[in-house]
Design a protein around this nucleic acid. Structure first.
Lengths: 228, 228
DNA sequence: TCATTCCGGGAACGTTGTTCGCGAACACTG
DNA sequence: CAGTGTTCGCGAACAACGTTCCCGGAATGA
């Protein structure tokens, strides 16, 4: 009876609401924050695939089962990692025109993702809003407070900006990697086949004199979304 | 010596180039297409997580090891799934203004992703261009052939359109699911806390009289990217 | 018929996420 | 100070995973 009561229907409660127990009982030797930090360090060093419960536990010098005292599942841990990283935003007091302020948000998001190469892949898969994510959203809404667009479009702009940032970061990170070689190997084959004239022209033509400015792209998308 | 020669440095060759053997030896009982179809059927029915080599093999009535005659790894199989689904595009002969043509591409992409809910998640993680993907890209470039923007921006527009379609599809698919309830449960808590006034206003305010038209969003982003 | 070449797939290896349950550690009560 | 309730640490185990080995069989070309 007790077991059912405990494990029952709490699985729909997000991580951020499952909190510290009372002061009774044996005190924990670690914090959720420490576990999260260990996972982040591991991901930074060896990539997201290396973040298994066992490896994280080893990082902390404990057994795998111990982690489940701090986290309900591996997915929870991933959510914690995402939000913890978002704590690093240092955003200036909102004020002035909205576009430059939004671009600053993009710039810092990009920097975060380059510092933590596993971040974009993670954010594209799961869409979590933890405490720090919520702070960021509040900041964006403050930036856009004076903008005439309806709220729905502002939320939409935030979502698109997030996705776009992740997408562009992935592109930057894959610059000259193995995945890229995969692609070009096959594309060379496609070009040789002769069909796909436009693709051929696009890829064999002289490389653009001016490298496309990524920040301009973001600006264009944002003004496209919000007008002005 | 033979083993090294065979398994050696071919791992950088994409799936699409590893092709049928000679007519000698015992003929295969299945085709790569059949394996792919089985995987797609399984994913449609039980989600992407159910697509394990063992389950796909069971679907075909064989052992897990047999699949490796058709595919080098599970990742290869996922790439095949993506491209196979892209074969379903039925795009009209290009002609006329570019925006409506691009929106038709979006519309069909969206339909594909709603029919195969595992698709967006997969496309956001891995960026593969198989034969059908290449055809789609060629189509888009044909649509934009008369457009004055530099090629780089056109490729960029294609990439953004793909990402955006996947992102919006995920949003649509998560409409009323468990993940959504996670979010709103925590957001309610955030609102109750009192900080985040703009967020509170955005979420508690009267729901927008007009539901935001997703197609308009895409149009806005595209014109933002390409101008005009 | 024989040699060659390839396919099918049982068995096994290493790794994964997660659960069970027990012993130990602390706070509180009497 | 003993007892009780409650929590923590974590070894062991389970089921499932991707992948490799390897061998028996099946087909083709000579």
């Amino acid at each position: 009876m007790g077991a059912i009561e405990r494990g029952g229907m709490e699985s729909s409660v997000p991580v951020w609401l499952r909190e510290r127990r009372t002061g009774v009982g044996r005190p924990a030797e670690r914090t959720r924050a420490e576990v999260t930090a260990a996972a982040i360090a591991l991901a930074d060093r060896e990539g997201l695939a290396a973040v298994s419960m066992r490896r994280v536990a080893a990082e902390l010098g404990t057994g795998p089962a111990s982690l489940y005292r701090y986290v309900d599942s591996r997915d929870d841990l991933l959510d914690l990692m995402i939000d913890e990283v978002a704590a690093a935003y240092r955003l200036p007091e909102p004020g002035g025109p909205w576009l430059p302020a939004m671009l600053e948000v993009y710039r810092q998001g990009r920097a975060l993702m380059l510092r933590h190469p596993w971040l974009p892949e993670l954010m594209q898969t799961r869409s979590t809003l933890g405490p720090h994510g919520v702070d960021l959203l509040e900041h964006v809404l403050t930036i856009l407070a004076g903008h005439p667009a309806p709220v729905g479009r502002k939320l939409e702009a935030f979502a698109v900006l997030t996705t776009l940032t992740a997408s562009l970061a992935v592109n930057e990170l894959n610059g000259g990697s193995a995945t890229r070689q995969h692609q070009t190997a096959y594309l060379a084959h496609v070009i040789a086949a002769g069909r796909h004239p436009h693709l051929t022209a696009a890829l064999t033509g002289a490389p653009p004199d001016v490298a496309p400015n990524v920040e301009d792209t973001v600006a264009r998308v944002l003004t496209g979304l919000l007008g002005e």
